[in-house]
């Protein structure tokens, strides 16, 4: 099937089979391997991308569902240098193995688009379904709060 959609700001078309997930389309068809597969069942958050302004799990969406949509992946975030959140991840030591990081960053970019100054509760809600096994989340929270502080100044 032919799909036509906006990917990281550019209009793209692709001929795909109906039984590919969006994650597979992004990684295999478009070579955007920054989006990770941690479980394939929507349980870990590593495959999070932004679809029509909302963060979603690309492993639970069929590629054909992307037709007509607008999708942003981790590759778009640093197109003009690191984002505030990415910088905060660096500084706060919020990265260890890094496999979950793109998912956290995408959830965060979507959060900061929804609200410039999220409360702790809103950060928790945004990150609730993202698993990280290395950091214990503490540094990730600190990174999110750092962006928050920066935006209010």
């Amino acid at each position: 099937m032919k799909i036509k959609f906006k990917l990281n700001g550019e209009l793209k078309t692709a001929e795909i089979v109906s039984y590919m997930t969006l994650l597979e389309v992004l990684r295999d068809t478009f070579g955007l391997t920054g989006t990770k597969c941690g479980c394939g069942n929507g349980e870990c958050g590593a495959c999070t991308v932004i679809m029509n302004g909302h963060p979603v799990r690309s492993c639970l969406i069929l590629g054909v569902e992307a037709d007509g949509s607008e999708i942003f992946t981790i590759e778009s975030v640093s197109a003009n240098g690191l984002s505030d959140l990415q910088k905060a991840f660096l500084e706060e030591g919020a990265v260890q193995c890094g496999f979950c990081t793109p998912g956290f960053i995408m959830a965060g970019e979507a959060l900061f688009k929804r609200t410039q100054n999220p409360t702790d509760e809103e950060i928790k809600i945004a990150l609730g379904g993202h698993l990280c096994r290395c950091t214990g989340y503490d540094a990730i929270f600190k990174a999110f709060k750092k962006v928050k502080v920066k935006k209010t100044l």
Partner: peptide
Amino acid sequence: MGCYEIRNR
């Protein structure tokens, strides 16, 4: 229910 991303779908 679920998590934020799941609730979007």
